[in-house]
Structures are given as structure tokens and as C-alpha cells.
Design a binder for these strands. Structure first.
Lengths: 236, 236
DNA sequence: AATCACCATTGATAATTATCAAGACTATAA
DNA sequence: TTATAGTCTTGATAATTATCAATGGTGATT
């Protein structure tokens, strides 16, 4: 499973917001201790409750963050290149709150927690970058929480479609980035309910054909969705 | 409205995790620029969407964080002494994602965002404390999000009662810390549904008398609630 | 004490969402 | 290609949750 490869051969990691202001010394110390591994699809990388041994960076592929409780399971988010996950657990030297599995064959950089915390202690610029990253993550979760508490399932779907449309150029033709099962779980609904929500949106110009969705009446869809930058904007 | 009082006369603020490792110089610069004000109950301190002008510290009283969208409103959290709120917005120099209002007459320390960011730039120890604080906030929201996505309303209530019981010494006699309207909103349900959820829990030894709840069969309640440290623990 | 406003509870009903079951479709591998 | 496993959709039904309306309680103020 281990693919021999030097993590230092990764300019895209060095270019990450999180790392770009780290001093060369701390960066190479971290990289020397790290592993760059390729995993097949559907590998469970971490389980919630485990101690945070590594900070993960998705270099290639896609990783699903999910949570389990009782018999249920829910998708908490997706991480695509180049993004990190479970930074907070690593910094607090705590257990993971979420589990993670690969969605596709993926190349991941694994930095031992201990080294991240050491670099955090020694490198002031790194500590500051972490603040910015954590603040962003925090605001993202708050937005998702608002989405869930303040909107119905149909509204969540409508807004998600509008977001995907914007992400993909705003042509009105949207490719769903994940399977419908996964999208349903992200939106906190069952697959059956997602199907029906798509039907509910038909009168608002939403035409579904497999993984392709055409939005033929954005105005009408927005009237229903009432998109809100304080929930939907990825940036701010 | 402004009560003349020097913010520097507040050892409890200096003792906050967030501030206790800040250098004296930065701390007093921040405090000199700050305001210590007392507000009556039900004052809306900030509105989501406003630029983050101040970092707030609750010195006395209680502040409710809530969010609005469409016609709806939802309680996102409560801040009690000595705690801060909207740190992330201040650091990112972004708009607030949540609104805040006083629940009671409250004494608040307001530190201008600009000064917080300056201290963050100049004082390394402060930057590190902020990381720890933000990581904790982040994990709290993740837990709340899991609570909402993985549990039914009755389960959320059962677990909340168990938490209150633990917070209050585990005697089985719980004083609800907020009005039922507010608790319902925190748990993402209507007041009517909360009433019914209490009734549903009656066979599990939950006896409600106004703001007092007696838990007479913790074992049975736990069997229903299935408390999970990865959702319910405030600490980790 | 009386008024008033607010909150909590209950009942009746509606809307939303989930579950179960079956069938259609899709992608992939033998 | 034919299996085959998985996903998606639809229908029927059940469970959960919300809404509306009415009532009783509580506390504050007058």
C-alpha cells in the first residue's frame, strides 16, 4: 500500500495556504517525517474516537468525512485536493470526531501529529496560518449548521444546486459531484427523500437526468431557495 | 448605557485561557482600547451580516447566539461568564455569521477587532492561545452538528438532560438553565414538540415540574439516549 | 387584587420525512 | 454478453415533526 515517494516533491503542498508561510526548516522537518501514500477507493483512513496520529492532506482523489452514532451514519463533508482534514484534533492532541474514507483512489500526505504540533510551537508563521485555517473551518461548520437548522430539505437541495451551478460556471447545466446517496447524506436526508425533493423542484425548472441536472429557471429556483450569503458563500 | 469602568480591573478576563499567556504590553493595549459596558436583557448586540467590529467577552450575565434566515430564527448557543464569542469573524475581519442578544442584564467587555488582530500579529503567545480556543470552538460545533444529523428530537433531549444532570452534580435533580422555548430552539425543535418529547420520556423516569426535572431512572434514560462522548462531552 | 403579557401545555390536524418493498436502471466484471 | 451488485426511483405506509388554536398557568406591573 505504501508508495515510495518523497513528500518534499510536492510543490502543491508547499503552496497550500496552511504551509506557504512556514519556514523552510520546519517544513522540511515535517515532510521528512511524513508519508505520501496512495489508497484505493473505500478505505477507511480514520475512525472517530481514535487518537489523532496524523494530519492528512488530500493531494489527489477525494476523501469523505463522516460520522457514526447508534446505527446511523452521516456524511459530514468532502475534502478534495489540495485540502487538509482533522487539523483541530491534531492540534488539541485529542481523538478524531469524524471518520474518513477514500471515495476514489487517492494520494494522501500524512504528517505525524507530533511533528505538526512541534512546528506549531516553533514556527510563529505556521501558528498564524493555522489560526486562519481553523477560523475558516469553524465558519464553514457554522454555516452548515445554520443550513440544517433553518431550512427544509427541499430548500437545502435547491441551494445546493445553485451552489454547484455557480461553482461550475453558472451555465445552468450542473454535474452532480457525488452520488445521490452521498448528496442525500450531506443534506441530511434519505436517498428516497432526495429523489422526491428533485421532483418537488421540477416546477422550478430543475430537470434531472442521471448525474446531470439542468436548471432552466434560475430566478424561480432562487425565489424558492432564498440563497443567503451567510449560509451559502464558501468564501467569507 | 455606557458604564464607566476600567476593563483592566478584571482579573477574571486576564485569567481567561485566551488571555493568560498574552504579554502584559499587548494585553494592556487591548484593554485600553476596550469598553466594559452593562446591557439590559434582550438587547441585540450584533446582527449577522454586520462587520465584526468587536470581540465580545461575557463578564457577567448571559448572551444568546442565534441565527435568522427566511422568517425563521434558531438559537445557536449560549455564552456564560467568562467566555468569548465571534472570535473567528474578528480574526478573519469578516462579517458576523450569528446574531447575539443578552438574555439577562449582562456586563460585556468589547475589544475592538483591530486591536485583537494587532495583538494577534504582535504577540506570538496570543496567537497560539487563539489556536487552542478556535480548535475547541470548532470541535463544539462539529459535535452539535453530529447531534442534529444523527439523533431524533427525543434522543437529543434525553442526552441534553443527562448533560445538565452531570453539570449539576449528578443528583438526578436538574434545573433547566434556560426557558423551554430557548431549549427547544437549541435542540432544533418547536416548543410544542419539546413538551411532547418530555412526555415521551416520562416512562424513562423523567418528571417535569416547571423548570425542575427529576431523573428517577438514569439507567433507563441512558439506554434510550445512548450518550456518546464524541457528541456529548464538553471537554475533549 | 386585578390586569396584562408571555409562556407552556394539550388537542386536532397537516406537512414533512423516514421506512419498507419492489422494480428499473447502471456500471462493471466474469 | 450475461451476470451481478449496486444505485436510483416510485409507491404505500408509518413515524416524526410542525402548525394552528385554545386553555391554563405564571410573573410582573399597576
Amino acid at each position: 500500500m505504501v508508495i515510495a515517494m518523497r513528500p518534499s516533491d510536492l510543490p502543491e503542498v508547499r503552496a497550500l495556504d496552511l504551509f506557504k508561510s512556514v519556514g523552510d526548516e520546519q517544513f522540511s522537518t515535517m515532510m521528512q517525517a511524513s508519508y505520501l501514500q496512495t489508497f484505493p477507493a473505500q478505505v477507511e483512513l480514520i475512525s472517530e474516537g481514535d487518537p489523532a496520529d496524523f494530519l492528512y492532506i488530500v493531494v489527489e482523489g477525494c476523501v469523505e468525512l463522516f460520522a457514526r452514532a447508534n446505527g446511523r451514519e452521516s456524511t459530514m463533508g468532502m475534502v478534495r485536493p489540495v485540502g487538509s482534514f482533522i487539523l483541530a484534533a491534531v492540534l488539541k492532541d485529542a481523538v478524531y470526531l469524524m471518520s474518513a474514507r477514500t471515495c476514489q483512489r487517492s494520494r494522501l500526505l500524512m504528517i505525524p501529529s507530533q511533528n505538526v504540533r512541534e512546528a506549531f510551537e516553533r514556527d510563529e508563521a505556521f501558528a498564524r496560518s493555522i489560526v486562519v485555517e481553523l477560523a475558516s473551518c469553524y465558519r464553514s461548520v457554522v454555516k452548515e449548521h445554520k443550513d440544517l437548522k433553518l431550512r427544509s430539505a427541499v430548500e437545502r437541495l435547491a441551494n445546493r444546486l445553485l451552489r454547484y451551478n455557480a461553482d461550475q460556471g453558472g451555465s445552468g447545466r450542473v454535474e452532480l459531484p457525488y452520488g445521490k446517496r452521498t448528496i442525500a447524506s450531506m443534506l441530511a436526508m434519505t436517498p428516497e427523500n432526495l429523489s422526491r425533493a428533485f421532483n418537488t423542484l421540477k416546477p422550478y425548472g430543475v430537470e434531472v437526468d442521471g448525474a446531470t441536472v439542468r436548471l432552466t429557471d434560475i430566478t424561480s429556483l432562487e425565489t424558492l431557495a432564498k440563497p443567503n450569503p451567510l449560509i451559502d458563500d464558501r468564501k467569507t
